[in-house]
């Protein structure tokens, strides 16, 4: 019986595990090895030189690395907070039985199914200085108040480029987490609300004392996924800034900086070793933050 079971386990796991090992794990381990070397990324493999931790030492004093990381951290703070706040708000509204809720839900979720590349192309035109929708609307408002319009370059200004990129990421993510929270909220037994209503609690109090605690597990998972998204941002930044990382690289994140170093001609001494080292640091940060995110948000899970 037991050997039959083991054979079954083996035969079912063998193919997925080996595919995963060969095509996913081996390349990542390979990347870690490359981060310890000097390699141009275009020469054949025999030209690779072992350099130990040289690239990691260089990272310590690389201002552009730290600037990119600080942008990631800003995204990490702003994006989850805004996304969660909006998603929770919409989810709460939709579970209150508003008319038309279904329609809004379908619309709000839609950005999630669009590819990031298309979202970024479309939003590149929203932020366009002269023909963009955003300046168009703002100029209409300005005219209504008798002020002159402007052609503000949202993606061409060091102060607005990163917030612009972040708002696109939020725009796309809100619908997804909203649906997630709707499902979670509908799983909360109605009796809990009835009891508290008898106690005279307002909807606001109920939201904080019942909904949020009972939704906590879902929120935790959402935080982890938003953390991963915040540390990536590669496609948004690349397409919205035409690959430049924005003016003064003001929207540069680790992923785009890594690309610029490894592939974009931004490093003449060790493009691939250094770029890969940045990627390895990024990976470690993601793993650390995910673990941290789960730990910080850990609290008594409410069973019901």
């Amino acid at each position: 019986m037991n050997s039959r079971k083991n054979l079954f386990i083996f035969s079912y796991m063998a193919l997925p595990v080996s595919l995963y090992f060969v095509f996913v794990l081996v390349p990542y381990l390979g990347a870690m090895a490359i981060s310890l070397t000097r390699w141009t990324g275009t020469s054949t493999l025999d030209a690779i030189e072992f350099r130990g931790l040289q690239s990691f030492q260089r990272i310590l004093s690389d201002e552009k690395f730290w600037s990119a990381l600080s942008h990631n951290l800003l995204v990490l703070i702003v994006m989850p907070i805004c996304t969660l706040a909006l998603a929770l708000l919409f989810a709460a509204l939709f579970t209150q039985g508003l008319k038309g809720a279904k329609f809004f839900r379908i619309v709000f979720f839609f950005p999630q199914v669009m590819s990031v590349a298309i979202v970024a192309i479309v939003w590149g035109f929203v932020f366009h200085p002269t023909m963009g929708i955003l300046n168009g609307v703002l100029n209409l408002v300005a005219q209504a108040f008798g002020r002159a319009g402007s052609n503000f370059p949202w993606l061409g200004n060091v102060n607005t480029v990163l917030p612009s990129v972040i708002s696109v990421a939020i725009w796309q993510a809100v619908g997804f987490y909203m649906v997630l929270f709707i499902a979670g909220m509908q799983g909360i037994p109605e009796e809990l609300y009835e009891v508290s209503r008898i106690d005279g609690a307002s909807a606001w109090v109920q939201f904080w004392s019942i909904t949020i605690p009972l939704l906590w597990e879902t929120i935790r998972t959402a935080v982890v996924f938003l953390t991963i998204a915040a540390m990536d941002m590669y496609t948004y930044v690349t397409i919205l800034t035409n690959g430049s990382g924005g003016p003064s690289r003001a929207a540069d994140v680790l992923a785009t900086y890594m690309y610029q170093q490894a592939f974009g001609g931004g490093n003449n001494s060790n493009p691939f070793g250094y770029g890969t080292a940045i990627g390895v640091v990024l990976l470690l940060i993601i793993l650390m933050l995910s673990a941290l995110g789960l730990r910080v948000t850990r609290r008594e899970v409410n069973e019901y």
């Binding site: 932020f127 200085p129 052609n151 503000f152 370059p153 993606l155 061409g156 003016p247």
Partner: peptide, 15 residues
């Protein structure tokens, strides 16, 4: 020109 920094090459040339 205002807005220049937000334009690509073909866009600024068109302006």
């Amino acid at each position: 020109m205002e807005g220049t920094a937000g334009l690509t090459h073909t866009e600024s040339q068109a302006e």
